[in-house]
Design a protein around this nucleic acid. Structure first.
Length: 406
RNA sequence: CGGGGUGUAGCGCAGUUGGUAGCGCGCAUCGUUCGGGACGAUGAGGUCGACGGUUCAAAUCCGUCAUUCCCGACCA
């Protein structure tokens, strides 16, 4: 992609928000705020978001998840079956004939109602559909850039099992899959599985909490034992159960990037999803649900991995692999050659082909945060000057040697 | 939903005791520049959030509503 043709661009003057991700993503032209908690993703931002979604997709598929796309409009009657119609989070709307709907802020009702048609026998279980869809939540106060919005992208998976044992086994596989997701997006070393409130049917749920001062949650860490506990469930009883002492805990701020939850049979009972077991007896499937918000993950990466010059994207989710810069008119032809060569090799490259001075191009490259910067100039002739965004070292190499960096 | 701040050109901002609006960036044209956000010249671009009130006169004072940011509350 040639930067001169890109929809969206960097700004020199940018309001400095309290939220780093809001400031940097807007300044670099990755997102545009439409309203409080409502964001449009521009080409660069969408590329990142899609890469995160694809990682999630791959890892969910790897444990047997099956992708679906549910409806965003969810009728009142479904919510009423589970007593969730009158909740503040819901954006409500209605048809011209008066039928009432809420925009989906979670989809247990929809998926369970559909599942009901396909679950008759224990032989039909287990399965785990998931979707990646925009969720709508009527937050009283949107905040923190793209991390707590009124609409946001969410991967939600729901699993259905014949019994608790089967759920427990799948739950552990989902937990592992979540670790792989956070590792791949570059947050692995600072993301902890955290004991959190389990609601009515389970003692705990598990949150995936990424350490960051920008986080809304307070968690307590025992790093040696790799145990983390959300402040909301920190009691002496819980500490005893987990085998940790209060005085060995470290209090930290964290961002909840994922949450997995054992639902038991609340929804299968509420929505009357039943199957016949081996003995011909009617049973309710045991369910689990598993959420990750790709847009929140994107914001979290910005919060955690940026520096004073701008964003620093990990390779797996960077909008492009290479940020090509040509300096001086004499380098234009060589830049064109390098650009075409890289594209032919399947390397994703953003070429800043604007007729600007070097300083502006460097500053924009730092702000945008693509992992590898490649400079061509008359000074370097046919050689390429490469520098990784995350470190300072500059190397001069031949085009053929570039594959070692991307 | 309570509390505080904010609203003026595409973006970031200034605008004093009321007298119908400026600066920087960006943008357009030209020239000089050209390895860490260059410089000069010329130019385009705003019913000052909305509505109502006070006044000869309102970006400016008063009221209401909407907006946005932050703190808190909330957060299957």
């Amino acid at each position: 992609m040639k930067y001169s043709q890109l929809f969206g661009r960097t700004r020199k003057s940018q309001k400095q928000y309290e939220s780093k991700n809001q400031t940097l993503l807007q300044q670099a032209g990755f997102v545009d705020q439409v309203s409080a908690g409502v964001y449009a993703f521009l080409p660069l931002g969408l590329r990142v978001l899609n890469k995160i979604s694809n990682i999630v997709r791959e890892e969910m598929n790897a444990i047997g998840g099956q992708e679906v796309l549910l409806s965003a409009l969810v009728p009142q009657e479904l919510w009423e079956k589970t007593n969730r119609w009158n909740l503040d989070v819901a954006f409500k709307t209605e048809l011209n004939n008066g039928g009432k709907f809420a925009l989906g802020w979670s989809h247990e009702e929809v998926i369970s109602t559909i599942a009901q048609q396909y679950i008759q026998s224990y032989k039909d279980l287990p399965f785990a559909p998931y979707q990646i869809q925009t969720k709508f939540r009527n937050e009283a106060r949107a905040k923190s850039g793209i991390m707590r919005g009124r609409e946001f992208l969410m991967k939600d998976m729901y699993s259905f099992h014949v019994d608790q044992t089967d759920l427990d086994a799948f739950y552990e596989r989902a937990k592992d899959a979540y670790f792989r997701v956070f590792s791949r997006v570059g947050l692995g070393d600072r993301t902890f599985v955290t004991f959190a409130s389990g609601g009515v049917f389970a003692k705990f749920s598990h949150e995936f909490q990424t350490l960051s001062d920008a986080g809304e949650d307070t968690i307590y860490l025992q790093r040696d034992k790799n145990i983390a506990i959300n402040k909301e469930v920190l009691t002496d009883e819980v500490l005893a159960e987990l085998g940790v002492r209060r005085d060995e805990l470290e209090e930290v701020k964290a961002i909840e990037v994922g949450n997995i939850f054992k639902l038991g049979s609340r929804f299968s009972e509420g929505l009357d999803v039943k199957f016949l077991d081996e003995k011909g007896a009617q049973q309710f499937p045991v369910m689990g649900c598993y959420g990750i918000g790709p847009s929140r993950v994107m914001g979290t990466v910005v919060e955690c991995l940026s520096d004073e010059k701008g964003m620093v994207w990990p390779k797996e989710i960077a909008p492009y692999a290479v940020h090509l810069i040509d300096i001086g008119e004499g380098a234009r032809g060589q830049a064109e050659f390098v650009y075409e060569s890289l594209k032919k090799r399947g390397v994703e490259v953003l070429w800043d082909d604007r007729d600007l001075r070097a300083g502006e191009k460097f500053a924009d490259a730092d702000l945008i945060g693509i992992p590898l910067r490649v400079v061509v100039s008359e000074r370097n002739g046919k050689m390429l000057e490469v520098k990784e965004r995350s470190e300072g070292e500059v190397r001069v190499i031949e085009l053929e040697a570039l594959s070692a960096f991307v």
